[in-house]
Amino acid sequence: MSPAFLYALVGVGLFTLGLYALIVHAHLLRKILAINVMASGVFLVLVALAARTQGAAPDPVPHAMVITGIVVAVSATALALALMLRVRAETGRAELAEEPLE
């Protein structure tokens, strides 16, 4: 097993850790961060496995994908943060309303 798999496993771990945080934390900022952690986990899996063939140059395609993914994640994060500020401005709390809206 090459070290690439180790990184991939770390990526999986980040993914689930992010998921845990996404679920249990109420504050929206934490949720947004958790999403980002999850995204990092996925990217890590993608990139790490690209280099798993020992002795060969890493596969460039996943790298390109990750760059694309990062930009998407950045965009989404920006939007999420702006939205979070709106939520706080409208409801006074940076948390999700847990009761269904009436």
Binding site: L19, I23, E98, E99
Partner: peptide
């Protein structure tokens, strides 16, 4: 039940 399903934590866990 609908309120339960709408709670974030439960819902996402259910998803998982």
């Amino acid at each position: 039940s609908e309120r339960f399903l709408q709670r974030w934590a439960y819902a996402v866990t259910l998803f998982l």
